[in-house]
Every structure is written in structure tokens, then in C-alpha cells.
């Protein structure tokens, strides 16, 4: 019994000593009023493996309204919300500034655009799909493990798994978020997304795709608090060639950064089911004008 106790005490002491030695080898941590994710990333030496993208991230642009360059414009709610009811201006995030639609597909995009607030699936709180879910103006959180990278999105409480350990597999079924397979290309996380249903749009301005969409995302940690997010989008039925978008992702560094809920079904219900409510008094747009059924 005494020998066992002595062994345990020696073992514990050596363990404490090793911890003290390893702590002295770490780089200094940033100040304490920013998130622990930042401190952890700053402390990891660059040669210790792929970068850890875990943390809370968010875009700062209006790409979710329109991927292409756009001036500020009204929404159908300015009579109720005034200046809060406008779409902000934004520079194009598309390489080459415009999306290379095939001629028929461009006509379809214009039809989508003409009635966007009724047709946009995200206005109904439907799952946005990839890449749109990334540039929705809500934060998302990356939890990175060896076998899978789980991304949780505040918008709609959506999520996806990027499988890191099953290359060459296929999804058994199509889905709104598609099937994501990831691998590291140096320090860039490359994600191939296939089998997305054709029902999603790429933004709220009618930009869309077909059932053969293939998406390749690249997440590259350029410094502790910025990821360069680049996406190649291809669908030969809709576009004349593959095309790219790119934008920075910004880490939410405040200490209390967290995802909250934006379970938008109760908001989408008004758009979807208002006309089916008891005592509904006729179709109208939110600005009071009539619209056809």
C-alpha cells in the first residue's frame, strides 16, 4: 500500500513538472477579453498539422441578397419598415463580376428575380443549401474533429457534416444541403458538395442552379481571425462554364460569441400560409397592393 502511494505521488509530481515544462514552450496568449478559440489558434505551432478552423465565423457582405454587384434597393416592406426595409448595396463576389449563364438559363434567372420574394425558398425558411448557407448574414460555428467537421448555422438551426474519412463515397439520396466530402490540400480545407436538390437558390435575386450542381469550397485560414472562402460552382445545364465566388469569413472574437436560435419557420409561415388563415380578407402584398394568386 505504501509503495503504491509513493508511486502515485511520484507519478503525479512528474506529470505536474511536465505540464509546467510544456506551458513554458507555448507562445504568449492574446488578452483575456476575446474568445478562447482565438487564444487556442494563436498558441498552436504552424507545423503541428492542418489548421483548426473551429470557432464562430460570419461574412460581412450582402452576397446573400445578390452575388453580383448591386445598388441599394427597396424590399416590399418599406411602407412598414421604412429605411430598415431596404437591401444594402454590395460589390460582386463573382470572379469576372457576372455569372456565366447559358442564354435560356439567364431568362429563367430573370423570371425568378421578377417575383423573388414569393419564389425564394429561403424566404419560406427552407434550407439554403451550399454555398448560400455560408454567406447568410448569421453566424455559424465550425467544430473540427479528425473524422468529420460539423458546421452549425444559426440561420434556421441548419447544419452539415463534412466527412473527412470516407473519400470516394456517394450520397444515397439528394438533400437540400447536399453531401460533403472534405480533405486537406496543404492548409486549405477542400470540400466537394454533390447531390443538392435543385430547389435551392444561390441568393435572393433569383440566381439558381439545376439538379447537377457540383460545388467545391476552399477554406484557407489566412490569419487567426480570417478565412478566405472560395467556391467553384458548376452545372453544365445552367452555366456555360464553372465559375467562382470568394469572400473573407470573419471570426467572431467577442468572449460571449455564441450561436443563438433563428428558427424561422414561424416567420416563413406568414408567407406560406397567410392566405389559408381564418378570416383572411384577400391576397395582397405587404405594401397593400393586390397580387394574383
Amino acid at each position: 500500500m505504501k509503495i503504491n502511494l509513493a508511486v502515485k505521488l511520484i507519478g503525479t509530481s512528474l506529470l505536474m513538472l511536465s505540464v509546467l515544462i510544456s506551458c513554458s514552450q507555448e507562445s504568449s496568449t492574446p488578452s483575456m477579453n476575446i474568445s478562447s478559440d482565438v487564444a487556442r489558434v494563436a498558441a498552436v505551432p504552424a507545423e503541428s498539422g492542418p489548421p483548426d478552423l473551429s470557432g464562430i465565423w460570419q461574412v460581412m457582405n450582402s452576397a446573400s441578397w445578390n452575388l453580383e454587384g448591386h445598388a441599394a434597393s427597396k424590399m416590399p416592406v418599406t411602407t412598414i419598415l421604412g429605411a430598415l426595409g431596404g437591401i444594402p448595396a454590395g460589390m460582386s463576389v463573382v470572379e469576372g463580376t457576372t455569372i456565366p449563364y447559358l442564354p435560356d438559363a439567364l431568362e429563367q434567372r430573370e423570371k425568378n428575380r421578377a417575383d423573388w420574394n414569393n419564389l425564394d425558398p429561403v424566404a419560406k425558411c427552407y434550407i439554403p443549401g451550399v454555398p448560400r448557407v455560408t454567406y447568410m448574414p448569421w453566424p455559424f460555428q465550425i467544430l473540427q474533429t479528425d473524422s468529420e467537421i460539423f458546421i452549425a448555422y444559426e440561420f434556421g438551426s441548419q447544419s452539415r457534416s463534412i466527412f473527412m474519412d470516407r473519400p470516394g463515397t456517394e450520397a444515397p439520396l439528394p438533400s437540400w444541403m447536399g453531401y460533403s466530402l472534405g480533405h486537406w490540400d496543404g492548409d486549405s480545407l477542400v470540400v466537394n458538395v454533390t447531390k443538392q436538390v435543385p430547389d435551392t437558390w444561390l441568393d435572393a435575386s433569383g440566381n439558381y442552379h439545376g439538379p447537377n450542381l457540383v460545388v467545391e469550397e476552399r477554406y484557407t485560414l489566412v490569419d487567426t481571425n480570417h478565412i478566405q472562402y472560395e467556391v467553384t460552382i458548376d452545372d453544365p445545364d445552367v452555366y456555360s462554364r464553372p465559375w467562382k465566388i470568394s469572400m473573407p469569413l470573419y471570426r467572431r472574437i467577442e468572449e460571449n460569441a455564441r450561436l443563438l436560435e433563428y428558427k424561422c419557420v414561424e416567420f416563413g409561415e406568414d408567407l406560406l400560409y397567410d392566405h389559408l388563415r381564418k378570416d383572411y380578407d384577400g391576397p395582397k402584398a405587404l405594401d397593400g397592393s393586390l397580387r394574383g394568386n
Binding site: 478559440d37 473551429s54 460555428q141 467544430l143 473540427q144 474533429t145 468529420e148 460539423f150 452549425a152 447544419s159
Partner: peptide, 11 residues
């Protein structure tokens, strides 16, 4: 259910 675990969070 799926449970994903990092040192700082459980999803």
C-alpha cells in the same frame, strides 16, 4: 442523434 465533440463544445 449525432454527437460531435471538441474540447470546448459538444454539438
Amino acid at each position: 442523434m449525432k454527437l460531435v465533440q471538441t474540447e470546448g463544445h459538444v454539438a
